[in-house]
Write a protein that binds this DNA or RNA. Structure first.
Lengths: 126, 126
DNA sequence: CCTTGTGTATTAATACAATAATACACTAAT
DNA sequence: ATTAGTGTATTATTGTATTAATACACAAGG
């Protein structure tokens, strides 16, 4: 469900927070939906449960998640179920900017970058 | 010359290492070229000199940089001046992969992503 | 009731990233 | 020779990320 890379340099709990935010933004996670349990995610990704819990707690502090004792975390009910396309494009912007910077430093043209991007995006189911 | 973001989560010295590697890969930095001084970069980016030095030292350990006492770091002479397009595309791949993941989670289509990517890339000089 | 499953608090330990303030060895130009 | 400019080593300190091992309070189902 999530992609956590322990070697990317980005803290694991931040990777998870970003991905939950994005899936809520798109509506793949809807208000009321339960998130995977802390222990399940921890085992699946070979990570300490407290690392997952830290991400969940911070998302709750943001108001994105609801917490009920003894139950799984859920997407906060008062949250808009799907953001506009422009809002989602804004969330994409950091990844765009990073790619553009890398492409310029590598002296790769827009056409070349777009080509490999389309190849990567078309591999939907794999 | 470089773009260092202290809030990205990625360690500053790793950001710098990646960018030097890319600019050598493209030939924007050629064998024998001098890098900006540690102190200059540190001041420009409001960062500790030792953080820059750490990046330089690790790149020297990789064989990418040459070091002469009392002089600026230079791009290693025995380094191929420009990598092939396929090698540069490989270096771009992590940024592509990250963008693709984000786009899927945001449920943005290839066309939508390509559109904003082209807009961002066409802002060459600003 | 009891068991299993929620998230979380606690304490300790480890590792890493970054800063700060000095100091050193060296080069190059004045 | 002096000065300014290289990178680097050193020591100390701070903050953060992560792991580990327990333990707690609660919910839900048998």
């Amino acid at each position: 469900m999530f992609t956590l890379n322990p070697n990317s340099g980005i803290p694991i709990y931040r990777q998870l927070m970003e991905q939950v935010r994005r899936m809520v933004s798109s509506g793949q996670l809807q208000p009321g939906n339960e998130l995977p349990s802390v222990r399940e995610l921890a085992v699946n990704h070979a990570v300490n449960p407290m690392t997952i819990s830290k991400a969940y707690s911070m998302l709750e502090a943001e108001g994105l998640l609801d917490r009920q004792r003894g139950k799984a975390m859920t997407i906060a009910l008062q949250h808009k179920s799907k953001e506009s396309k422009s809002a989602r494009l804004e969330r994409l912007q950091p990844a765009i900017d990073h790619l553009v910077m890398a492409a310029h430093q590598l002296e790769l043209s827009p056409d070349e970058v777009v080509k490999v991007l389309r190849q990567a995006m078309d591999k939907q189911g794999e």
